[in-house]
Design a protein around this nucleic acid. Structure first.
Length: 362
DNA sequence: AAATCGGGGAT
DNA sequence: ATCCCAGATTT
């Protein structure tokens, strides 16, 4: 790999970072545990979204031992709303492994650290470079965009086949004398200057070395392949009332929204009414006989690969004993107890309507 | 290689 | 609406 002006690019990036970087909570420490938690939370999640979660999480679980000893449900409740809940499950599991297999000390060697669940190429390099000053280059969305513009790379940033190219160029460009600062500098440039749309090239410390800028084609980089439109699914959920309480079920630990609690329901089949689907799904999953009382609302929500339109009904328990099929667990709760369980955002969109005076008795 | 996995911010 | 985000894991 032969790149031009690498020394000058490094120097200008680091100098710019020293002067212009944002003060962020995880930049006030070299504690590998805190760096690690921040990187997990920041995965596919913007800085401003993470900050309050990060502060709460570190206050509650200040070190890896505290996290390892914590109840998985308590950890998930702190993660509620942040999304990608497998990150939470993996981080908790990994903390247990650090305590059990590494004496509570986070491995300061990339290969061993990367064996932990949820630690991939990016997080391994980020933690090892920022916390331990080990010379590993990170490749995230910011890095790919910055490199694509500087070097006019035509490899689509959202194709796995492009990854080795970005990885190798990032490794070549890395400032091995201060890898943590350099990695953060490239990412910070991507976040503040080399933005996806309308990059602020007038304030860019490396515009003199940018191939896309020189050619006046920054808006053509990075290259990207379009992904297909997402389908819309028609879903239902039921608030099953019984003796002043409501039924919630816990989703299976794996898969979409794993481990979260929800008001039971499912997908409406072709040719089926929402009401019939609501009764059918609840009966299938719980064995209970229920009836529709009244419609509550319709909520819309977008996931990465599909959207949902969900009809929500007040239902009444009619008969039967609980025989769970699908969910991992269930509870009969009062309206104020919804605060004690982590729910998906789609549920929160109607939970706020469940004040104690709007329910039905029976 | 493609699909899965959330939710919010920016445009 | 669409893209994007300090990606990892499974299929």
């Amino acid at each position: 790999m032969k790149l031009k002006n690498t020394a000058s690019i490094r120097k200008h990036l680091v100098r710019w970072y020293m002067k212009h970087h944002r003060a962020l909570p995880w930049r006030e420490t070299r504690d590998p545990y805190r760096i690690w938690v921040s990187e997990v939370m920041l995965q596919q999640t913007q800085v401003n979204t993470v900050i309050p979660y990060y502060e709460r999480f570190l206050k509650r679980f200040p070190d890896v031992n505290a996290l390892a000893e914590a109840d998985a449900g308590d950890v998930l409740k702190l993660w509620e709303g942040l999304g990608y809940y497998a990150r939470c499950r993996n981080l908790h599991k990994a903390a247990g492994q650090v305590v059990a297999a590494h004496g509570g000390k986070i491995p300061d060697e990339r290969t061993r650290f990367k064996k932990l669940p949820g630690v991939g190429d990016y997080i391994a390099s980020a933690v090892q470079s920022i916390a331990f000053s080990h010379a590993h280059a990170v490749v995230d969305g910011n890095v790919k965009r910055v490199l694509a513009r500087i070097f006019r790379m035509d490899a689509p940033v959202n194709q796995p086949a492009s990854y080795p190219q970005f990885r190798d160029i990032a490794a070549t460009l890395l400032d091995t004398a201060r890898p943590g600062i350099f990695n953060q500098a490239v990412m910070e440039l991507g976040a503040l200057i080399c933005k996806p749309k309308t990059p602020d090239c007038g304030n860019c410390p490396v515009s003199d070395h940018c191939g896309a800028y020189a050619a006046g084609v920054t808006d053509e980089y990075p290259k990207r392949v379009r992904r297909k439109p997402v389908p819309v699914r028609h879903m239902v959920a039921g608030i099953v009332h019984k003796e002043g309480r409501m039924l919630i079920t816990q989703r299976k630990a794996e898969g979409l929204l794993g481990g979260l609690w929800e008001f039971p329901g499912g997908e409406v089949r072709k040719g089926e009414t929402a009401e019939a689907a609501c009764i059918r799904e609840i009966t299938e999953q719980t064995g209970l006989s229920v009836g529709i009382v009244s419609p509550l609302t319709r909520v819309r929500h977008a996931y990465t690969h599909f959207k949902i339109e969900m009809d929500v009904f007040h239902c009444r328990y009619l008969a039967g004993d609980m025989r769970l099929s699908g969910p991992d667990d269930f509870r009969w709760i009062t309206p104020d107890e919804t605060d004690d369980y982590p729910f998906p955002k789609a549920n929160h969109k109607f939970i706020r309507l469940l004040t104690s005076d709007k329910g039905v008795s029976g």
